[in-house]
Structure formats: C-alpha cells, structure tokens
C-alpha cells in the first residue's frame, strides 16, 4: 500500500471510531449531538498534553484520556440532556464553539499554535508508524464495534432504543430518561476521546480548528449517510465521506457545503441511511432543519 493510501485509511479508521461513538448517542439513544468534534478534541488535547507536558506514554495516558473525555461528556451531558431535542442541538453546537475557543485562547492549550511534537506510539520498543499504526487504529475500531454490538444486545441498549422511540412510554417502564441518555453520552464521548488520542499521536501536531463545528457536521453526516442506529453504518459513512474528498479533489473547498447538502438530502429521501430502515431520529433532525419534515 502506498503511504498516501495508508494515511487515508488510517484517518478513516480514526473517524470510524469517533463516528461509532456519535452513533451511540444519535442512533441508539436518539439524542442529537452537533458538537461531537469537541469531545474528539478533548481526547486529542488531553492525549497531547499528557504526552508532551506529562511525559506519559500513549498506553498509560489512554485510560486517562478516555476517562477525561467521558467525564467531561458526563458533566456537559447532565444539563444538556434535560432539555428538549431542538435545544439539545443548540446546546451541543454551543459546547463545540466553547471548547474550540478554549483550545484557541487558553495558553495552556498552546493557543493558536496548537500543540506540536507529540511523540509516536511505542509498542514493545517499536515506533508505530505507517501500516503498523493503521493496524493499531483498526484494532481499536474492532474493539469499538464489538462494544457497540454488545450494547445493542444489552438491556442498556434496549432501554436507549425505547427512549429514542417514545420517551414517556419508556419512562413508564422504569427507564430513567436522564440516566440512560447520559450513559449513551458517556460511551459516545469516551469513544470520541479514544479517536482523539489516536489522531493526536498520528498527526502529531494538533490545533483548535481540527475540532471545529464543521468537523461535527462531518461526523453527523457520516452517521446519517451510513445509517443511524445500525452497527456498520458509521463505518460505511466514515469510509465514503473519508474517501470522497480524496477522489474528487475539487470538492475539498466545498466540503462543508457538500456535507450540509448531503445531510439534507439524506434526511429528506433516505432518513434511515444507507444501511438502515430505522428513522426514529428523523423527527429530531427534522425539527432542527426546517423543511425536512416528511
């Protein structure tokens, strides 16, 4: 495989991990999130800081990185998930902008210069780069998919599906809406954190704009395109939207517009996504994007 292909494949694998996390929140629990890139960023920045300032290895830092992302997900999710769907969209956008601004303006996070000099991942004394790092990402992607697979089979997953479909009925069956939405949020943001850590150690130089709002739209487009609530949808979505700009180079400048249009088209004509017929979150999305009803 050429170095170029490996780079793209690695980024796609990382995106797939992050997008699987978003799928837990949006697809499984039906909670719209337009700020997922913030948690991807929190993972990347905490991994970068622990590696450069903390001097920790990727492996020792990783549990902390995931925990930090999930914990901040918990803190931010607690007030956010109590609001109605349309407000949740706004709240999560807000979270994205605030987190990006913090990265950009707080000197501790490197300011506009970002954080550079992030070391490569070591594995038994070997520096992981190229194909080896791709396999590492693939390994984590498999782990994440297995977690999603299990989640869908678990009572926790079933509770989330029920909440997504009909919250008041779910509550009348003993399901605490706040508790289970938070659970989905924590799992989803934890996965975003994992993806962020891999991203930081792969790119090795991160800046606030890598985690800006358009990136959240990209992630959401991947979930919607692949199929919300399905197991493989996020992977397919990441694959297609990760590869597309590389195939159609001229598209790169219009990426953001393209993703927005794609989102609208998908919601209008194929709300279940490429891989699924479930369309429960359509209501949620339709409520935030006027004209997407029915």
């Amino acid at each position: 495989m050429s170095a170029y292909l490996i780079t793209i494949a690695t980024l796609i694998a990382i995106y797939a991990i992050v997008v699987c996390g978003l799928n837990v929140i949006v697809g499984f629990a039906g909670q719209i999130s337009l700020g997922h890139a913030a948690f991807f960023g929190i993972g990347a920045y905490s991994a970068a800081l622990l590696a450069t300032k903390g001097g920790l290895s990727f492996w020792t830092a990783l549990p902390c990185v995931i925990a930090v992302s999930a914990f901040i997900g918990l803190l931010l999710g607690l007030p956010s998930l109590r609001v109605k769907a349309d407000f949740l969209a706004i709240t999560t956008i807000g979270i994205n902008f605030i987190v990006e601004a913090l990265f950009l303006y707080v000197p501790f996070f490197g300011g506009a210069l970002g954080i550079g000099g992030i070391p490569r991942v070591m594995f038994f004394g070997i520096k992981l780069k190229g194909l080896a790092f791709f396999y590492l990402c693939l390994f984590f992607l498999v782990v994440v998919i297995l977690i999603c697979w299990w989640f869908r089979r678990s009572w926790a997953g079933l509770a989330c599906f029920a909440l997504r479909e009909e919250e008041s009925a779910a509550a009348s069956m003993g399901i605490s809406p706040v508790r289970f939405k938070l659970l989905a949020f924590v799992i989803g943001t934890g996965m975003a954190g994992l993806g962020g850590a891999l991203y930081a150690h792969y790119i090795r130089f991160i800046a606030a704009t890598d985690f800006a709002f358009p990136v959240s739209i990209l992630f959401l487009s991947m979930v919607v395109l692949g199929g919300m609530g399905t197991l493989w949808g996020p992977v397919l979505g990441a694959l297609i939207l990760g590869a597309l700009p590389e195939i159609f180079r001229p598209l790169v400048d219009y990426r953001f517009l393209f993703y927005m249009v794609l989102l609208l088209i998908m919601i209008r004509f194929q709300p279940g996504g490429l891989l699924g017929e479930r369309s429960a979150v359509r209501r949620v999305l339709a409520s935030i994007i006027p004209g997407a009803h029915q």
Partner: peptide
C-alpha cells in the same frame, strides 16, 4: 408503541 421495534421487543423493554 416503540414504533421501529418489533412487537416482542416492545414487550422485552417492559420485561427489563
């Protein structure tokens, strides 16, 4: 109803 779930899955939600 939990619309996109099957009938038996609806009942399972309550069993949970």
């Amino acid at each position: 109803p939990f619309g996109t779930l099957s009938v038996v899955e609806n009942v399972l939600v309550a069993k949970g």
